[in-house]
């Protein structure tokens, strides 16, 4: 356990030293600030020119925050893949791994420690951005997304899924190949998600099955769907589709599957890295 924490610390220290951490945080804060300014003007005009029932206003605000959440979920996935894509393969090809792996520690400590370090940074990042956007919205309009903490946690889980997949790839694939593979999988899940969504709208079972299959292959998009389902205002939920809301929620079984998926990916990464020559 001590070795795992030490490797996690090393991973975070590396991100800090290489200025990845501060760049991501700085730009993240800029994102929240820009969103705040934009939302301030939207809010002002909506209240001034389109006074209406609170329910309509809330739904409109909800739509805007969800758009921001969607961007955050995408940024989370990007950051997850970019930070982990070469984390093992890069150290193997540069031989820096040799002095670490010959210390009296298990190979698994290197994999799990790196995962843990990246996981902590990623989750903090998603919560900082998601929380920032939610708080700015609340401060300006008094509106808060329903189940916002759960929702952001699901957005973070989506990124963690990508992190775990790309860490597994990084045990065997070169950095570029792994990056391509990770983003292709993400794209697959994305398209699969939409096929399922449209299929369910049009009652096409084959399309729905294809969507489910892609979610089983990689449940990242399913976590975004679940997140947007739990965070959408009740009015939109009853009205039906919007680009950032879901008519049908993925089952909670999918959540359990996603959590298990992460565990399995990390376990496979440990196994794969444990067996390769360095």
């Amino acid at each position: 356990m001590r070795d795992i924490l030490l490797v996690a610390e090393l991973t975070i220290r590396e991100a800090r030293r290489r200025r990845i951490l501060w760049t991501a945080l700085g730009l993240g804060l800029a994102f929240v600030a820009l969103y705040g300014v934009g939302f301030y003007f939207i809010h002002r005009d909506m209240v001034r020119y389109r006074p209406g029932a609170a329910v309509v206003l809330d739904s409109s605000f909800g739509f805007v925050v969800m758009a921001a959440m969607y961007v955050i979920s995408f940024l989370g996935v990007m950051l997850a893949v970019l930070t982990s894509v070469g984390t093992l393969s890069g150290e193997i090809s540069s031989h820096t791994i040799q002095t670490l792996a010959t210390k009296p520690l298990r190979r698994s400590a290197l994999v799990i420690g790196k995962w843990l370090g990246l996981f902590l940074m990623l989750v903090c990042y998603v919560f900082l951005l998601g929380g920032g956007v939610s708080l700015v919205t609340w401060a300006i309009s008094g509106y808060l997304l329903p189940n916002v903490v759960q929702g952001i946690a699901l957005v973070a889980l989506q990124a963690v899924i990508m992190l775990s997949v790309s860490l597994l790839g990084s045990t065997r694939l070169s950095t570029v190949t792994n990056g391509v593979a990770a983003f292709m999988l993400y794209g697959l899940a994305f398209v699969g998600g939409w096929v399922e969504q449209v299929g369910s709208f049009m009652h096409n079972e084959t399309a729905v099955d294809i969507g489910i299959l892609s979610s089983l292959l990689i449940p990242s998009e399913a976590m975004w769907k679940l997140a947007s389902y739990v965070m959408q205002p009740p009015a939109i939920r009853t009205l039906g589709l919007s680009p950032f809301s879901m008519a049908a929620s993925p089952s909670t079984a999918m959540l359990a599957y996603a959590l298990g998926y992460v565990v399995v990916m990390v376990a496979l990464a440990v196994r794969s890295f444990g067996r390769r020559d360095l």
């Binding site: 590396e14 030293r17 031989h95 820096t96 040799q98 002095t99 010959t102 009296p104 520690l105 298990r106």
Partner: peptide, 21 residues
């Protein structure tokens, strides 16, 4: 086994280390 390396030191042929340290 990790235990076999507790009393051991190693300077690899490709001496590349974490350059940000």
């Amino acid at each position: 086994k990790p235990e076999s390396r507790r009393r051991v030191g190693f300077l690899p042929e490709h001496f590349r280390f974490h350059e940000w340290l």
